[in-house]
Amino acid sequence: MSADTAAQPGIITLELADKQALYAAYMPFLSNGGLFVPRSQLRGQQLEMGDEVFLLVNLVEHSERLPVAGRVVWITPRGAQGQRQPGIGVQFSSQDGGSTQQKLESLLAGSLESARPTNTL
């Protein structure tokens, strides 16, 4: 994929270096699952609640790229209470059939019940 494709509006490449980064980004409380995307990985895109997006999730530790459609359901603005990282939460589309959610939860087996803070809660 070229850099031009990654910069197209609504297409977001999310780099997750390891299981800890995946744990911090994963949003299991959303129907069909979802991921938090830090503002730094939005490449200047200004997205709003309800916007449709297409995620290309790079799981570096596993040499995988997961494509999934979704929509913006969470926005953490700059200067948010609790020093949270600014960014957006993307809920996976029901058209995915839970495939991405199952894949990510399998990778996070044993971690989902942790009390460690994440990028959203």
Rank of each mutant, 00 (worst) to 15 (best):
Q81C: 10
Q85N: 09
V53T: 05
N58Q: 15
Q41P: 03
L30D: 03
L47I: 04
S114C: 11
S93N: 15
Y26P: 01
E113F: 11
A69Q: 14
R65V: 15
H62F: 11
V53S: 03
T100I: 15
D51G: 07
P86N: 07
G97I: 11
S99N: 13
P117T: 13
E61Q: 02
L35D: 00
P67N: 08
A7V: 08
P77M: 12
L108K: 03
I88C: 04
L16D: 00
S93L: 09
S106W: 09
F92W: 02
V73Q: 11
Y26M: 00
Q83M: 09
L104N: 01
E15K: 07
T76P: 03
Q45K: 04
E52I: 10
A115C: 09
I88S: 01
Q81G: 09
V60Y: 01
M1V: 12
L16H: 00
V73I: 13
L22W: 02
Q91K: 15
L66Y: 05
D51W: 07
D18A: 01
S2I: 10
T120E: 08
M49Q: 11
V57N: 02
L112V: 12
R78W: 07
P67F: 06
S114W: 10
D51E: 13
L121H: 14
K103G: 03
K19N: 04
E105S: 08
S40V: 13
E64K: 05
A17F: 01
A6I: 06
A69E: 12
L104A: 05
A115K: 14
T13E: 12
E15N: 11
Y23D: 01
S111H: 14
F54Q: 10
E15D: 14
L107F: 07
G89Q: 01
L66I: 15
L66R: 04
G10Y: 09
L47F: 08
L42T: 05
Q83D: 15
G50R: 05
S63P: 01
F54M: 13
Q101H: 12
E105C: 10
D4F: 12
S31P: 05
G10H: 09
V73A: 12
F54G: 06
D96G: 15
E48P: 00
V53M: 06
E105M: 14
E105G: 11
Y26N: 00
T118M: 04
S40N: 08
L35V: 06
N32P: 05
G110S: 08
E48L: 10
P77L: 09
G34M: 00
A7R: 13
T120R: 10
E64G: 05
S63D: 15
Q20Y: 08
W74K: 08
D51Y: 06
A17N: 05
W74S: 03
I88T: 01
